[in-house]
Amino acid sequence: MNISLSREDIARLTDRIEAAQVNAKAIPKLTDDFPGMTLADGYAVQMELRRRWLAQGRRQTGWKAGLTSKAKMQQMGVNVPSIGFLLADMARPENSAVTTSDLVHPRVECEVAFVTKTRLAGAKVTRDEVLAATDFVVPAIEIIDSRFSGFKFDLPSVVADNGSSARYVAGGRARYADELDLDTLGVVMEKNGEAVTMSASAAVMGHPADAIVLLVSVLHELGEDLPVGSFVMSGGITEAIAVKAGDYVTARYQELGSVSVRFV
């Protein structure tokens, strides 16, 4: 990947992203000021943010793949998936109350999450290798929150913003991957008791494990690997749904149970 920005600019953009995330304040997309910004620049900012936060003693739990479905790519106007890192302090318990005052404009997605039992690394891991390295899968709700005004961004900006990562809730029922048809799992998302969006898991790149394949290859390009015990979200199966204080969301999955969360 070709980084075009100077170290100073990367530090400056990381300051902007960090401030926007910490203060829950929307900012214009980064490419408004840096129109030449590349995807590699976006990841350089994300990695700098990750370095700073891990240096504070925060623990990384895993990664997320984003923009992995046609529905999401169309919704956001991009055509390449992205990845972001997940920290323990982004996790929220199932059925808990998630505060919205520290978020800009949260949206929810239903996803299949993979938990790994062996290390995955390299430019070209296969779907079978991903499945062999998977300890179990669980259903998850990801709460994304772009720090860009109007949820309007391009790929370098959203990557710098850690793929819009904000909070996540894993729950439901853990299952062994080899006991399921991971691509035909039906999913229904309900908001305040009404079904608002639904699909099947093949919406994620034809098979959710293929999103992990992609994620590992991006990590490889960044000089990283996927360590044992990683929690990896494979990307929204449905479009993202906006939520606000007072909303109650349940994602129901075939074979995996359900995950609920409420917003206050």
């Binding site: 035909t184 039906g186 999913v187 639904m198 699909s199 099947a200 093949a202 034809g206 129901r252």
Partner: peptide
């Protein structure tokens, strides 16, 4: 069977065409 939550995946000539679920 879980007819409500059973996913429906439709491929045309090998390419993913649409995804749905019984609940639709």
């Amino acid at each position: 069977l879980d007819l409500t939550l059973a996913g429906m995946v439709l491929r045309k000539n090998g390419e993913l065409f649409s995804t749905g679920v019984g609940a639709a």
